[in-house]
Amino acid sequence: MDAALSEDNNSGGVVDSITIARNDRYRDADYTVNASTSGTVVALTSGQVVYIQSAAVLTGGTASGVGYYTYTGSGTLTGVNTALNYSGGITSGFLFQGVAYGSQPAVTFVFYQTRNTTTPIPASGDYRVLFAKTVPANSGLVDCSDVMPQLAVPMPTAGNTSGLGAGAPLRNKGIYLERGDRIYVGVFAEGPNISGYNPGAHIYAQGGFF
């Protein structure tokens, strides 16, 4: 999304549609417990998934044996992976998701625009946040039109639309780009996405140059 074509008559453009699509169908487990990983120290945050591949190595026990467990506690749970009690029904416990399970956590993407730089620096004034969009849990595709910036466009003086008075501007959604402007996308680090969103996502945008 870089409005930097070489033609003299191209001074920028506008992006009027952005869609986010996850790369993965389901989220992989954050930790796997088996004979090879036995004794590993883990730190779990709410929403992370543990796959118990072998219940025989556990000393803390499980609610339902082999399978996928989602940590439901409100704080960080740290300990040896085989010594944790993978049980449900308590505040700091786990929710058993089944032997064959896949889950996509909610993830928030943040869009920001830069000008005259390809290496934006915080507090330097060369970039600004445009909007943030959350992809809900277990949802693979979202449209960003509802949170994109509003653009004012002229309205015919003789026209009235949905109660707007004559001459009042219509409100459209889009992003203006001058030559050399860029739009970057990042993952808001929170909960299960504290280190980014490993499965990744595709960002689709459409618009035009002027």
Score class of each variant (00 low, 15 high):
31 Y>F: 15
131 F>W: 11
51 Y>Q: 08
87 S>T: 15
135 V>S: 08
90 I>C: 06
124 S>D: 14
107 V>N: 03
129 V>M: 11
115 R>S: 09
44 L>R: 00
57 V>Q: 07
148 M>V: 01
55 A>N: 09
59 T>N: 15
111 F>E: 09
94 F>W: 11
118 T>N: 08
35 A>T: 11
98 G>T: 07
59 T>L: 12
113 Q>T: 02
131 F>Y: 11
75 G>Y: 05
115 R>G: 03
101 Y>Q: 13
121 I>Q: 14
95 L>F: 05
107 V>R: 02
79 G>N: 01
132 A>V: 09
87 S>R: 11
150 Q>H: 08
39 G>C: 10
148 M>R: 00
45 T>H: 03
107 V>I: 07
143 D>R: 08
81 N>P: 04
47 G>F: 01
140 G>F: 05
133 K>P: 08
102 G>C: 12
22 R>M: 12
26 Y>K: 10
44 L>H: 00
45 T>D: 05
23 N>D: 15
147 V>F: 03
110 V>C: 10
131 F>E: 05
81 N>C: 12
33 V>M: 03
132 A>L: 12
71 Y>N: 00
112 Y>N: 15
103 S>Q: 13
116 N>L: 09
123 A>N: 15
17 S>A: 13
93 G>W: 01
28 D>N: 14
41 V>G: 01
87 S>H: 09
26 Y>C: 09
87 S>W: 06
32 T>C: 03
74 S>Q: 13
112 Y>E: 14
75 G>A: 14
59 T>D: 14
80 V>I: 14
131 F>N: 04
60 G>W: 06
83 A>C: 03
40 T>Q: 15
147 V>M: 04
46 S>L: 02
18 I>T: 04
55 A>G: 08
24 D>I: 12
110 V>N: 10
62 T>P: 09
138 N>H: 11
43 A>I: 00
54 S>Q: 12
86 Y>D: 00
104 Q>D: 11
19 T>M: 10
110 V>M: 14
15 V>E: 05
83 A>K: 10
149 P>R: 03
65 G>I: 01
110 V>S: 13
26 Y>D: 14
17 S>P: 03
13 G>K: 07
110 V>Y: 05
132 A>I: 08
44 L>K: 00
135 V>K: 07
17 S>H: 10
91 T>G: 13
17 S>M: 10
49 V>Y: 02
120 P>F: 04
49 V>L: 14
93 G>N: 02
54 S>Y: 08
57 V>S: 07
64 S>F: 10
114 T>Y: 05
100 A>P: 00
77 L>D: 02
30 D>G: 12
110 V>H: 06
151 L>T: 02
76 T>N: 07
122 P>D: 13
142 V>M: 06
53 Q>H: 14
56 A>E: 13
